[in-house]
Design a protein around this nucleic acid. Structure first.
Lengths: 342, 342
DNA sequence: CAACGTCATGGTAGCGCTACCATTTTTATC
DNA sequence: GATAAAAATGGTAGCGCTACCATGACGTTG
């Protein structure tokens, strides 16, 4: 009969059990697991054997309490269903899956207040790092991030004044490039169609406007937006609205690919030839763009790579090797396809 | 000058600080926060005032260690980018956002081994509940779930033998209903097109087969599948394959909506009239189905509701009110649209 | 009004781990 | 071979919280 376990806990082996079995001190077991280099090879082997035999797994809660640091990456994104963020999150998970870190994901619903609330929930956990989407945090959120006491990576955009580190690309340049492409292809009355005009969409719109003004083509009536959440159905509706205002429209730069696909379907439905009568450009270049008929031109954005890179930067900072480059611009790529091949 | 803080910890106020300020014992503060009913109104007020003044937030790690139970829901899904699971996850988050629970999300990549690994990571945290997608766990995973010591909800499917609780719908019936709809609409040489044939897709295929056999229409050459991850591009390719094998194909039931949309584009590209020449049915009824041209028939599945319901059941079980109904079938709904309106 | 139960509150002792410091052992240096 | 420096190991004392049990104040019952 074994000594009865203490009343609490689930009877799983603890570090003390391992230490006893291996004939060493508990602290040595702890070190062997976390900093193997600091323990002699002999003991390391003994300890590993004891760990394997007992099936010992460290308790992350106890570890977090004792070290005042949890092996958790806090991640805040505005949406879980938007494919764009889903891929960033996937990049983060893939980069973290073979290490000791867990992911704590929060959904801000594009709301600054919700972001504040979530940061307040995350902070007491003392996460190892924080990854947040966007650079438009409220002052409160920014303070919370600055005082989090861990590496912080803002993602999706570039900008001048990161809280700590920053990985993304320029939405302004993306919008401008897309619009210039339409202009070069010979389109003239080019509309902007956008839903859920979050800050990044606003910057794409600004890029659109810059390109249009430079070409002497700008007209405010070319812009059709809504604060509603983006969807393909909305893309169809918005194109109808745009055509009602501007029947002579001959091209559209869409806020994102969902809208673009809706626009394409509306063109089919109204028997408007793409690309002859109307040219279409989307944004993000989701997989569906090249599968569409006709294939749709879009701006490919490095979403997955942003996820991977943000983790790499955070891990480097945790390891004390803060990257010299605190702002990383991963760029984007115009993918011209039939929808703008006049 | 205040008494210097202990060397560790970040200097945030602890429960002892609150207790001192409120003039009560620490345990009473703990109770006031967790079970307000067991503390007199007077003390409750005093304590609340002290909490507010100090800005006290309980340390979740310490709490988890002391109570051998973390306020964490472990959630395992096969994919983060598949919109279907994204909506389940969104339902889970929305149901949990105003309570004390955090979410720990794991991506199994449709792999049983990965699922085992993740369960082994989750278990030591002593989560409050586990939500896992599917009913086809490996024996090891099943044992891990059974011995997790917390409510377990399997989601997305119905089935006879849940680990604990189960919320979903019948994929077999869904596949059969979709196929019967095509048959009733007058289609005869109805193909099945599917990618990434996970267990749920297999059951939809079985439903398709049952309907086809019952109508005397089954032919194995009508089935075109691939283990590759599903995408719209793949939908286009698979329809080409299917037509190469069976040029007389006059309808397709697609594994999921991505494939269906790819099939639609391929039809446009090959100038095949939908629904006259070919009828198309998808599965899940993502938003894009009704926005497509022509709008695509699909089987609407209660993804968001599955997420909500699974949390509701888990919370009830945590509160000691285990639902009498351990298996909940949320059903599905055929959404007939133009793509099958011959 | 004694005996008992119930309610409100508090003290003590951990939960399982690691930071900090002390001690011992080994290695490098002259 | 003495001395300093570095490496390896361990003991102690918490981290901040809650389970468990004890206490005292009240109300209820016959």
């Amino acid at each position: 009969m074994t000594k009865p376990r203490s009343r609490r806990g689930g009877g799983r082996p603890t570090i003390a059990d391992v230490a006893r079995k291996a004939g060493v001190g508990a602290i040595t077991v702890s070190r062997a697991l976390r900093e193997p280099d600091r323990v002699s090879q002999d003991l390391r082997r003994q300890i590993q054997a004891a760990v394997d035999e007992l099936g010992y797994v460290p308790d992350p809660n106890a570890r977090a309490l004792a070290s005042a640091r949890a092996d958790v990456f806090g991640v805040l994104v505005p949406s879980l269903t938007n494919n764009v963020f889903a891929e960033v999150v996937r990049g983060i998970y893939d980069s973290l899956s073979d290490g000791p870190f867990r992911v704590q994901l929060g959904n801000t619903h594009y709301s600054g207040l919700e972001e504040e609330r979530l940061l307040q929930v995350f902070a007491p956990q003392r996460p190892a790092a924080l990854i947040v989407a966007g650079i438009d945090q409220t002052p409160t959120s920014r303070k919370l991030l600055e005082s989090a006491g861990c590496p912080v990576v803002q993602v999706m955009e570039t900008g001048p004044d990161p809280v700590d580190m920053l990985v993304g690309f320029s939405h302004f340049d993306g919008g401008r490039t897309a619009t210039e492409h339409l202009i070069e292809a010979g389109y003239r009355r080019i509309g902007f169609i956008g839903a859920r005009m979050d800050p990044r969409s606003q910057r794409r719109l600004a890029g659109y406007r810059a390109a249009m003004e430079k070409a002497g083509l700008f007209d405010p009536r070319l812009i059709t937006t809504t604060p509603l959440l983006s969807s393909m159905t909305l893309g169809r509706e918005l194109l109808r609205d745009a055509l009602a205002k501007m029947p002579a429209l001959d091209g559209v730069f869409c806020n994102n690919d969902d809208i673009a696909l809706g626009v394409l379907f509306e063109c089919h439905s109204a028997a408007l030839d793409v690309p002859k009568t109307i040219g279409i450009v989307g944004f993000n270049d989701l997989e569906m763009m090249q599968a569409a008929f006709p294939p749709l031109t879009s701006i490919r954005t490095p979403r997955y790579e942003i996820g991977r890179r943000s983790v790499a930067m955070a891990l480097a900072a945790i390891a004390g090797r803060r990257p010299e480059q605190r702002v990383v611009d991963l760029g984007f790529e115009l993918k011209p396809r039939e929808s703008t091949a006049r």
